[in-house]
Design a protein around this nucleic acid. Structure first.
Lengths: 188, 188
DNA sequence: GTCTTCTTTTGACCTATATCAAAAAATGAA
DNA sequence: TTCATTTTTTGATATAGGTCAAAAGAAGAC
């Protein structure tokens, strides 16, 4: 639930929570829908109430590279694009029929200006995103393909078996052939 | 200068700036000094007024892996350890005689509670760190060794020739032999 | 200035994973 | 159910960059 996730970071009062939540909108989104395309400005921050999303970008050769997965109870956005209101480098896509809560950048700015605690929330959220991406970086940079897959299973236990193998392979920086072999314990 | 860097993010008043700066301490640190070791809680956030620092960690085989370089006008810390006051995964080391401004976590918390704008500053700083690490991740994950070195030259133009080659190689996820060959344009 | 230590370069060889190609399996539409 | 499409698996081969070893060069200590 979104309220629980908010309270987990900052102890908002009941009234504050109500005010904050009133700035969000519920959106039901179907599988395979693309929320943001490369080049567009991402004007919303989403909270995944139900379902799975991912961000990805296209390499020059046209291949998709998954950048991140967003599972239940996580905020989802093209962070840089949202906060700087700059063209997104990434696509945002929904991988299963999902229920999202979204807030626009304008409304977020209102909340950030109104509540000191809201700034704190987003600060803590940003630091958490940072920590997670550092974790991935360390996995991707210095581990074998097998170890990277183990990292994936630990970071996204509930997602690893619900999305196409190719998405996971590109997320981990390997080909899908390699990931397929890993899953089936084939040495070469 | 630290004041310019602060104002660049958030428009602090003169009085606010004075108050904030009074919470920092100037530290002159000599080359090769280690500010934080793995396992210690990083209690300070540093601003590099002059010099260069880096963060690194040790792999199980004992090899050092440079995680980040901190040049002039940048904040330096073991971010996760500082903000969560948890044991640092990284070492922080000074690579040239440097002038730093430091603030303790306690004093930072005072400022964060006192000034809404301070929360905003750290939020923006966190998002910037996030953006930079994502940039590195994309470089490391999908580019050739040569392209990764080009990324390094772009991200740290003033640093690339002042630190040992081995530090840069591990930062980029390659061996120093490979980086040496790249610098000398040897194909194999 | 000489010696020691640390850093960088060069060479030979090896391996993890990529690439290419095609078969097999799963999914979804009609 | 059948056909078309997408996803996954399997096999054969190639290669970027790793490993190991040693020489060359640079930097500090005395």
């Amino acid at each position: 639930m979104i309220t629980d996730s908010l309270i987990k970071f900052v102890p908002f009062s009941h009234d504050e929570l109500n005010d904050i939540l009133s700035h969000f909108e519920k959106e039901c989104v179907q599988k395979n829908q693309v929320l943001i395309k490369e080049g567009q400005v991402c004007n919303k921050l989403y909270f995944v109430e139900q379902g799975i999303g991912r961000s990805y970008y296209l390499k020059k050769d046209g291949k998709e590279v998954t950048q991140w997965f967003f599972g239940v109870d996580n905020f989802m956005s093209s962070a840089d694009s949202f906060f700087h209101q700059s063209p997104s480098f990434y696509y945002l896509e929904i991988l299963e029929d999902s229920v999202l809560y979204s807030i626009t950048k304008e409304k977020m700015d209102i909340l950030l200006a109104k509540y000191h605690k809201m700034e704190k929330l987003i600060r803590l959220l940003s630091i958490e995103m940072f920590t997670k991406i550092v974790h991935k970086l360390n996995a991707v940079q210095f581990q074998t393909a097998k170890e990277r897959y183990d990292y994936m299973l630990a970071e996204f236990p509930d997602i690893s078996n619900r999305v196409p193998l190719g998405h996971i392979a590109s997320y981990l920086g390997m080909t899908q052939e390699t990931l397929s072999r890993i899953r089936n314990n084939v040495s070469s």
